[in-house]
Design a protein around this nucleic acid. Structure first.
Lengths: 340, 340
DNA sequence: TTGTACGCGTTATCAG
DNA sequence: CTGATAACGCGTACAA
């Protein structure tokens, strides 16, 4: 039911090759035949078949973006950055949500590979499982062989691979955030960890650890996650336990929201009784109560840069790693500890 | 550099047809030849070419989703719903952000049409511009002719079109929210409008109007938008003006966050001095200060349903309209007006 | 159960 | 400047 090049050609009284030429404008065509072709195109409501084009030209107009959860602003912001940049080049972005499952991620990479996408952007920290990483590395090498570039956005490089990485310096960010609390006079600073085995969570934890150790303090770490509920549960444990902390560094902003909620449930005022620092600076951090002190990550910018690489706008040596600096944003959720 | 069916066939010592058959499993194949084929596939790292497959079988494995802004949780949630459902069927979702521009929307629909996507999901309210709607309707008819279904998610039906619509009853929701304020004793209730010409904004405004008129009250409407900043500016105007309202119904939660911020800047306590109600109930509404009273929309569910239709899992008569009921969520930002 | 051969809609090469 | 025509990689009747 859809018109083809041949249909248009027949109607315009030319060969299909000519139609192709006026459509792509890459070869000279006489002005009047060009006009005839264009009317035929309009009359038949002709629409190029991207599959046929991709097959013949062996190029695709789509890039793939893999995220944990597209409704999470952390990923949403990066995806938006990628998408915006892709749009500049008339590229389409297929977005895949893995729910944090490495297996799903591998599955999606395979799916994207058979779509012959121009490039695959993997966002967010990876799971530090040797088996998974080996499989991923192998997949990425096959991708490279097949001409599909891979960009890592907000995630460290994958060993034995020439994927370009745009990583956040989370070690630095968490260390600075912890130092800020230290500077305010806190000594009992707890850290709500991110998901076990997540590279981002590990980097943040390491930064926290470094700052604490350097200050001669004992790290106080409790398991958590990157979602609000994990943060709440972790905080509940922390606040109920012995030696309650005077400050909490959360795995990310969502977890920090959970910590804030738990503090409220415990009748603690933030920041008077408890200081809380988040991580990421998603858009809503400023609207939380109190406005969340946090570590800002240039999420959209990272996405844009990844998108530009994906679109082939910037020449990149394989295996390059670019590190993006976070920034501590001072708002109202962190203050000096309560007097004793 | 990528292996083809023929390569695999050669290596396995069979015809390419046989390889195709074992890959698709839709025809009987002898167990040992099947094994030979599979080893060849593995050895050559063969990956199906989705374009070739789509061309030959004239079916595609991708659906298109058009949103205003993927980093906005309103759209992110719907997109997540669609995506999750698509994933069940091994479908990929290409997500396009229009930034609210009707022209961009049309452009993306065209782009998706040439990708021969299975289905296009258009999310969120549309612009009520006759020219745009006419063009859209025409495009959707061509889509139908070409076999591409269209689902409207969170948006009213497009006239002269057989697109399936899943719409929210925003008129009802805004009316109930307003009634809630009325019931609390408010008389001076203002409404921060959404973007001019947006169908969703209009429906919400109409609901507000109806409730006010029924109560014999004068509507107090101020231009706004669906973003935080618009809400803040609108509230600033409202709070600086004569006859300051005791309650504000915001166009959506983001705008409500802006209203809350403006109230803080004015030294007004919410809800003691000013009640605020949002709309959508995005995940962060509960973390705002005070926790936002709002109207919950089943965003993810709407997305899932749209996704199921898109995946062809549910038989749908063309032109059907399903209306989803919102629900007023009582939290802490709305209370009786201050004593005079 | 397996192979042959054609068609899917474009692009690109090569004549003219 | 334009027209044949051969790929592109796969699905699928039709035959064997």
């Amino acid at each position: 039911v859809a018109a083809t090049l041949a249909d248009v050609a027949a109607r315009a009284g030319v060969s299909s090759a000519t139609v192709s030429r006026v459509l792509n404008g890459n070869y000279p065509v006489a002005e009047n035949t060009r006009a005839r072709v264009l009317t035929a195109v309009a009359e038949l409501h002709y629409v190029v078949n991207a599959h046929a084009r991709a097959l013949a030209a062996s190029t695709s107009d789509v890039i793939g973006v893999v995220v944990n959860d597209i409704s999470d602003p952390f990923f949403g912001s990066m995806a938006a950055g990628v998408q915006a940049e892709a749009a500049q080049e008339d590229l389409l972005a297929v977005i895949c949500s893995t729910a944090g499952s490495p297996q799903e991620e591998l599955r999606y990479v395979r799916l994207l590979l058979r779509q012959r996408v121009r490039c695959i952007v993997l966002t967010g920290g990876h799971q530090e499982d040797p088996g998974y990483l080996r499989e991923l590395a192998e997949l990425l090498r096959h991708a490279a062989d097949a001409g599909t570039a891979v960009v890592l956005c907000g995630r460290p490089t994958v060993p034995e691979t020439d994927a370009v990485a745009l990583d956040f310096d989370d070690h630095w960010g968490a260390r600075e955030a912890t130092r800020h609390l230290l500077g305010l006079g806190h000594r009992r600073i707890a850290c709500v960890q991110g998901p076990a085995g997540n590279s981002t969570a590990r980097a943040r934890l390491a930064g926290y650890r470094e700052a604490m150790t350097a200050a001669g303090l004992e790290p106080q770490i409790t398991p958590g996650g990157f979602d609000r509920e994990s943060g709440r549960e972790a905080a509940l444990r922390l606040l109920a336990g012995e030696s309650r902390p005077t400050a909490v560094l959360a795995a990310n902003d969502l977890a920090a929201f959970g910590v804030l909620a738990a503090a409220r449930d415990h009748g603690l005022r933030v920041p008077d009784d408890l200081s809380v620092i988040g991580y990421d600076d998603i858009a809503f951090a400023a609207d939380a109560f109190p406005a969340l002190t946090t570590v800002r990550l240039p999420l959209v910018e990272a996405g844009s840069r990844a998108g530009r690489v994906a679109a082939g706008l910037v020449p990149t040596a394989g295996g390059t790693v670019h590190t993006l600096r976070p920034e501590v944003i001072l708002r109202d959720s962190a203050a000096p500890p309560p007097e004793l």
